[in-house]
Structure formats: structure tokens, C-alpha cells
Amino acid sequence: MSSSLPNFGVAQPGTIAEAVAACVSHPGSRFMAGGTDLLVNMRRGIVSPDFLINLSGIDELTAIAADAQGMTIGAGVTIASLARNAAAVTQYHALAQAAAAIAGPGHRNMATVGGNLCLDTRCVYYNQSEWWRSANAYCLKSRGDTCHVAPQGQRCHAAYAGDLAPALLVLGAEIAIAGPKGRRRIPLSELYVEDGKAHLTLADGELIVAVHLPPGAPASAYSKIRVRGAIDFPLAGVAVALSASDNAIVSLRVALTGTNSWPFLLAGTDPFVGQLIDDKLLHAIDRLVQKQVQPMRTTLASANYRRVAVAALARRLIANLGGTAAA
């Protein structure tokens, strides 16, 4: 049997500077970290870069450390090692839970933090074989001119389905980026825009180097719904970071994934500060989540199911973290 992949070259840089230089000198190339998403998409002919830059040989990307200043996680740290990292498990619970909920154990051994943050958006009209997509005249995200999910719309509605991003958003993460113009550091939320076709704000030749988390994280948790419970992308996922005193909210952050073309922090949670965690509050959260998520027909499960279910997940996480039985 011949190879399942088209021809391409591979660079194996040993440093971040070499990786950036390789990307600049090969227009149309792609960085490859674990390859667990990219190679699947390449096998299906969804993307076909001529040149891959394999990041797995760069030691700087695999550093992980926690101290009084917070936690720094190299973009090349594998999902498996993040899921069992002591600091993540004890201080950044949502992050460890999200890591443990990604794909299967084999994928987690290869997939990386940076790769999960940069995960391509997904859609039932996009993540298909070449013959399936060609029979359907392709789609707006790749080689076509119509979004089959919203034919009247102007943009691609493929959903972002990374698990780490919502956990990192509620924990206040920043990311360090390296590129042809040097290094910069931005809040994680600025990595994304809501466009299924181009959801990352990284410029050509830029890659994520590390994730920084501030110290003193509040209690946090992550939960998701998926078609195949053992191993699947989220139909919808929710991360919550909550600190409470006497059953009243001191701070609350909620972030969502799987429902929109970007992972995002729920807006409008500040008015909940000081309120008791009771049925009334949970109902208000439910309404707020349902109002802000925009699930479309991008998965086999219906959009309305995902809207209702993601709100229920948010309610449950807040009730559990607040230590109340109300949900």
C-alpha cells in the first residue's frame, strides 16, 4: 500500500528561532506539534501543505513549572503530562480535567497544549473525506463558496472544539508567541476571533511558545458533552472558575467551547457578585449562557440540544463548585 498522505517535506528544527525561520522560508508551510489533528485532516485532503515544520524536537517548548508567580506550561507539553501534572491537578483543576477529557490516551501522549489551543474548527460539512466533500460541492471553509450550515450567511460557522481554551480562559491565562518580528505576550482571549475559517489571530510564521497562569486560582472545573464518551471532541464544553464566601459569589468566570467558532468568556457575570448560589442565580446563568452561545448545525447532535445542554452543564458546575445541591 502506498502512503496515505500526499508528498511534502519535513523540517526538524532544534530551536524556536529555527522553526520560525523555516516557516518564513517556506510559504504555505505548517507547524506540526503532536500532529493528531493536522495529520488526520491531511489524510482526508482537507489541508495539504507542501512542507511541515515538526516542533517535537524543540526542548524549550516542553518546559513546565509552577511557583509563587504562577504556572508556565510550554506549548509542546503533551496533554497526557499536563493531565497528571501535580500543580495542574491541585491548583488549576479545570485545566487538568479538560486535559484528561481530550481524545483517547494514545492521542494525549502525542497531542500538545499549543496544538490544542490552535485546533482547527470543526463541522460535519468539513471533517469528511475528499469524495464526500466533492460530492457536496465543498464548503466555504475549504475550496467552496457556500456555507452549508448557513447558506445565506457571509462567514464560515465551523465550531471551535478545543478543550483547554475554556479552562485557560477562566483561569486568566496569557500566551507567549514567537514570530518573525520577535516575541509578544497576549491574553489568551486575544488569540481568537469568531470566524470558523480563520479563528486564530496568529500572523504568518508565528507560533505559541508557552502559556502563563497567574497564581492563586479560585476553585475551577470543566465538563463537556460528546457523542462518544470515551474519546471525542466536545459537542459543547464549559469551564467555570468560582470563588464563594458563605455561599455567596465573590468572583465568577464561565467560558464556553464547542458552540461557537471561538472559545469565549461568558459576558455579564459581574452582576452576580455578592449573590447567593441558589436556584434563582442558576436560572439566570442558564438564561445568560443560552443567550450567548450560537450552536449551529455543525455536529450530528442538534443545535438546540447543544444550547440547552451547555447551559445545564454550566449550572451544574457552578452548583457543585458552590457546594450547593441546587441545580
Binding site: 493528531t36 495529520l39 488526520v40 489524510r43 482526508r44 492521542h107 501522549n109
Partner: peptide, 24 residues
């Protein structure tokens, strides 16, 4: 399968189980 969904291709690389169908 056509990419990382079934685990039939699992081998060990440096002692860790990985799907060899999505490993170069």
C-alpha cells in the same frame, strides 16, 4: 479507520501507546 479513531494501529514509542496511523 482513516485517522486516529479506532486504536487498532496502537504501538509503543518509548514505552508510550500511540496511534501509528497519525504519527510520521
Amino acid at each position: 479507520c482513516d485517522g486516529g479513531e479506532c486504536g487498532a494501529c496502537t504501538v509503543l514509542v518509548d514505552g508510550e501507546a500511540v496511534p501509528s496511523c497519525i504519527t510520521l
